[in-house]
Design a protein around this nucleic acid. Structure first.
Lengths: 397, 397
DNA sequence: AAAACTTCTTTAATAATTTAATAAGTTTCT
DNA sequence: AGAAACTTATTAAATTATTAAAGAAGTTTT
């Protein structure tokens, strides 16, 4: 098979992954090829058992199109989502299902030279235990915090290898599968773009409310990463004159006035000062549990918890106002762990925009809460791998 | 001639406009066509006298390539640059020359329902007086302040027509030439991207230091305009807690702490308060003259004038720090009227970045002063028209 | 219920691209 | 200095893709 045909095949597989069920005409449009070529390749993919036809779609006013989907149980991928403390590993199929319970390991990234090897061993272990033959895996997608150079496969903040060696190449060398990495906030944005609230959008900002405030930018319909891949450093834009020193070394960062860690901190202070709240029994040393508890209190209408989120939301709004002035997005999506607090974010952010934004500008920008939930990063890591899929070699031919 | 061939021809003409002198191989790459097709079209363009071959280029290690350029004196365009008070109109050729002295008319845009018609009449007049036959003009490019919808050809701030009618269509209907419009800051950025300091860059921000502080964004190698074309509203990002009311209705906008109008204002105050300076004879009611005078004083080393620019620069730096955090550009270009003050901007902005930016981020971002001068917007308006050129009809065939 | 209209699929004619061969010029090595 | 090796450009032939036209299947309108 020629190189070119391989590329076309991979592109079709990729489009079917993102599009689920598509007609031949849809695929023509997406891969920018003519009907005869597309159909011929599709036929080949069907005989190779990578694709199946899924019957006729409803008519849109004419002959009903024959539709195609990816064959089930023939291709899998490994999806990994890391934060500073915990790493989640999942095996996913081409229909975006987690086909085993998600593995969760404690893996601190700071001052941990072993981290990369631990990660590799664990991934190999998960593949091994799955019982799925390795040839059926097409690759590994990994999301991680820090400054990530996607092209080179290097993380400048964590998981460094000697001589700035590429992590992706390092892992590929050991496991024998293609690897793609990216920043966690970028992957959450990618998940929203491909499978979430930003589907079909061209200019959307995804705010990752987590231990910090991350930002993934979708500009002109594509994930924007910046000159060196460092775009979206929302957490540390200096917009407050509060004199609070941030761990980044500067003062007045957005992060010093809003983040889940700050909310937990303030909750603790409030309780210690005797504030009346359902939160009196806040778990002390586990941020995940503490966060869940406060969000639960919010949903139960606890006044103190709501107050904390409102203030944080108002401050996020100040940052969002700047985003809207600079980038004129059609939509802002609140995602990440904090998004599970739901509609509570809407009012304070809207209020903040009323105060800090030119009316004509935010008029056409909607604020939405993500529906992808806590596993958005895993979905994004899978999507990242599939975005790069067309460059991979087709295993068999 | 087929539609498709027309398109290819226009693309080649466009690439020759932007590339000046190119070989057939260069053009193959740029228009993404094979050698045989490209060469055939080139030959046709030469016989049509739109293109000439310009001899052999120096060898780069092999056979010397035959190069091509646009024929002189066969195509012209009208370029227009507007601000709130003054409109400049120029006739340009395909080699980016102003072939007549630039026309300058006083044309206030605020509360002026006649403005559009005055503009049209003046453009028609300029074409008439040039003595160049109208068939040789390929179109009109116009830059203007305000919120501009490029696709629809509407300016929501100025030059409105009844029922939000398209200005471009309106002008085309009267003059009979294709018209493209865009925001002034976007066009300055486009000029830098195509013919200035951002040539070849992919992620560059162009700051238009003028009566306000404009911003043109080049992201992923293209001018970024946002969801409705309103991106780059840098002047009004709320980052100061100064309580100063801006004309936009909000307080603390970037514009309230830095802009040429503010510098003029402060200069006036200082002089009235008896500050020692070469500026004691500041022209009172013409901002252009006043601005020129202060910039002249800066260049002569006047301490007071330098102080004013330094403070303004430091505050621009605060805004730039936010840009760098969010968009990780490879370069920031200072352009517009204020750029003529030159290197004076460098130190205070750099100082501000040191204080307000994460080191790892601004390390790889350079700050440059534009060399295009005060006519950047006219060059940008021409570039805008040529960017759209491939959609135009070839006049003769 | 038939005609007109859409949309998808197939086939044949047309157009573009790749590939291979050739020509023209540079550099490197002896 | 001169030949061999290497680049790059051009031409021609073979391959591949696209376009246009015709046919098939279904929906909507008259």
């Amino acid at each position: 098979m020629t190189e070119k045909k391989k590329l076309f095949k991979n592109r079709i597989l990729k489009e079917l992954y993102f599009g689920d069920t598509l007609s031949c005409a849809d695929l023509c449009f997406k891969i920018d090829k003519s009907f005869p070529v597309t159909q011929k390749i599709l036929e080949e993919l069907v005989t190779e058992n990578l694709v199946t036809d899924t019957g006729y779609a409803a008519s849109t006013g004419g002959r009903r199109p024959l539709t195609y989907s990816l064959q089930k149980n023939v291709m899998y991928l490994v999806s990994v989502a890391m934060d500073q403390f915990v790493t989640k590993i999942a095996i996913m199929d081409m229909q975006n299902n987690f086909i085993f319970p998600i593995e969760k390991i404690v893996l601190p990234l700071t001052n941990n030279p072993e981290a990369v090897q631990v990660l590799i061993d664990k991934i190999a272990n998960v593949i091994e235990l799955s019982g799925i033959p390795k040839e059926k895996f097409i690759g590994i997608g990994i999301g991680m915090p820090g400054f990530v150079d996607v092209e080179k496969g290097i993380n400048y903040s964590f998981l460094n290898l000697p001589d700035n060696k590429s992590i992706t190449k390092h892992i590929t060398a050991q496991i024998g599968l293609p690897v793609s990495i990216d920043n966690d906030s970028s992957l959450i944005a990618l998940a929203e773009l491909r499978f979430g609230a930003a589907k079909g959008d061209r200019n959307t900002m995804v705010i990752n409310i987590g231990w910090g405030i991350g930002l993934g930018l979708i500009l002109n319909g594509k994930l924007y990463r910046g000159h060196e891949g460092f775009a979206g450093e929302f957490s540390h834009i200096p917009i407050f004159l509060n004199g609070k020193l941030c761990w980044c070394g500067k003062a007045g960062c957005l992060e010093t006035e809003t983040s889940l860690l700050l909310i937990i901190e303030k909750a603790r202070e409030g309780i210690n000062a005797g504030r009346l709240s359902k939160l009196s029994s806040l778990p002390l040393h586990d941020p995940e549990l503490a966060c869940d508890a406060i969000i639960k209190a919010v949903k139960e209408g606890d006044q103190f918890a709501i107050e904390l989120f409102s203030k944080a939301g108002y401050n996020i709004g100040k940052g969002v106002a700047i985003l809207i002035h600079l980038l004129n997005p059609n939509k802002i999506i609140l995602s990440g762990r904090g998004a599970s607090a739901g509609q509570i974010w809407q009012a304070p952010i809207q209020q903040s925009l009323n105060e800090h934004c030119i009316h004509r500008l935010f008029q056409s920008t909607s604020i939405e809460i993500s529906k992808l939930g806590i596993d958005a990063e895993l979905i994004g890591a899978a999507a990242l791998l599939m975005e790069n899929y067309e460059q991979f070699k087709v295993s068999k031919n």
